[in-house]
Design a protein around this nucleic acid. Sequence first.
DNA 1: CTGTTAGCGCTTTCAC
DNA 2: GTGAAAGCGCTAACAG
Lengths: 345, 345
Amino acid sequence: MPTIKDVAREAGVSIATVSYVLNNKKGFISQKTRQEVLDAVDRVGYTPNTTARNLKSSQTRLIGYAWHKAPRQSNNSVLDSFIYYLAQAVESAGYHLLTFTHPSQQPLRVYDELMRSGRVDAFVIADTNDNDERIKFLIDAGFPFVSFGRSKPNWEFSWVDTDGHRGVREAVDYLVGLGHKRIAMAAWPAGSLAGNHRVAGYMEGMTANGLALDPSAILHGEHNEHFGRAALTQWFTLSPQQRPTAVIAISDLIAIGIMNEAEERGLVIGRDLSVIGFDDAPLVQYLHPGLTTVQQAIPEIAEAITQILEDILKASQPTLSQLLIPPRLVIRSSCGQPLPSTVSE
Amino acid sequence: MPTIKDVAREAGVSIATVSYVLNNKKGFISQKTRQEVLDAVDRVGYTPNTTARNLKSSQTRLIGYAWHKAPRQSNNSVLDSFIYYLAQAVESAGYHLLTFTHPSQQPLRVYDELMRSGRVDAFVIADTNDNDERIKFLIDAGFPFVSFGRSKPNWEFSWVDTDGHRGVREAVDYLVGLGHKRIAMAAWPAGSLAGNHRVAGYMEGMTANGLALDPSAILHGEHNEHFGRAALTQWFTLSPQQRPTAVIAISDLIAIGIMNEAEERGLVIGRDLSVIGFDDAPLVQYLHPGLTTVQQAIPEIAEAITQILEDILKASQPTLSQLLIPPRLVIRSSCGQPLPSTVSE
DNA sequence: CTGTTAGCGCTTTCAC
DNA sequence: GTGAAAGCGCTAACAG
């Protein structure tokens, strides 16, 4: 690969001059010299070496992003999609994504290593929890990062998150509009951060619509198809007058379990039982019937995160942004044919 | 961040000595000095700067990987999964993945830029075609890469691919074992490389089992749910004696279309019509009934690619590896309850 | 065994 | 307007 020296020799100027024209420093290079340099660059086929530039400027233009655990079937379609949009967004800001994995028990070592060795300029964190050690660590280290997802409320750091509260609230309103009164919710374990926001949206929606908040209507369980089945089974122990006519699942995977179990019990989804999921995972649109679900605005979230990252990286003093992005209800047919007046979009 | 100089000062030695002990050069540093340096490293909290190391060694320890286009619903579960396992594999080889995107019409510019600017040491290419310009470009440039997927047969480059021929062949054998004689295939457009391998496996399977190769049994169409529906509709124009009793779809998405259409026509999947997909996308296991499908060995493929990459990057002379990895048939219930003797694994 | 020093490719201050 | 030279942080001849 040709270096700046080759260009300088070819153009008959010093390497400083080459650097000046390539970096558009002031206008203080004569038009003639400038053109000669540019020609020489073309002739030798020169592209500045990024590593050298980085060393000089003490940056890497790399953003670190840790993969979520992806077992064979990841079932985390949101993050699958997020990383793509994030890659795209940081790229148009002139960065690249450096991806890495880490043992789930020891994430900090890897973050620390990447940070100390100057491998990346910043991190993007996803899949946060209540008391996320990575966030704590990066705050303490004073290292730039933005997270997709909230954590401990009193920690001061920049994040962007889906407004799960609002998403579920809208789902409740939609169901109420369809005439439902007994609406249940299949939620994640009580400790889940995102889960709690969504449940809060459910409770607010029920109350605001003057509906009873039956404690038996909220069931908590793991993020898998089986829990959906178990939840429906549980609701089936209720008398027909008490059983929910509509169910909001905190994730599509759980919604699928509910639908499968319901069908095996002879119910027709969309007629005997309405179901709403969360995430809009690939393929759920092709379920039978297509699943109505709350879709997170992933591209917008990725953009917002990148924007904040740029601000942080540019700013001399720390900036703080915390942003809630509304999701949208994608209406398909798992709640029956929607009434024209309630169709969104 | 402390540099090697800080450590040297702290330990009262030269920076060369620090470098020596950190790189375990020979054993020619006295145990005493070595320990003093190590202590100093600890005390100042030093980690070598990667950029500086890279500049010195003219490498980046970064592997470039271009994202597949991911529209909102990517429907490319194989690549979603591939990139994760690839990230993991290159990492244990001491590299990181640098991901990038490019306009679909102009991929070369980005590859060229990344290559010339010394941003990455090698590329991994996926989603190849028949006459892949990226592969041609990298071969001509003599730049290290390995691809997941084949291309023009007479091009000399290293690749790893799923043995789609074998995968479909096994699917045919499985169906024949179940008693099927009229087996159809829903394939991709005739130009598709991977598609052709799979169709070849179908044809070989039919012939080897002494079954008629009815031209109307193979239908070609796009990678979407609609084509699956259209294909089934087409087969339904055949007389009941000619209609296929089993169908192999070239992808799960197409299989879903077939299942949906069949169900709407009152068929029971697994009884009236058997269906086999390809890919084992997330969630297809939860379809009703669970989809029997050919699963690619993605983790193995990622490992193999990384291995070859390491060889190429280490070797002074070019090495060439071309590897076909067998997929495996994951049997669920879309072909009915499997006979015990035909259950794989 | 350890230190001095050149140099990886580039940017930028300071002279001229 | 342009060039010489220092230096980003590190490795590795080469000296001693």
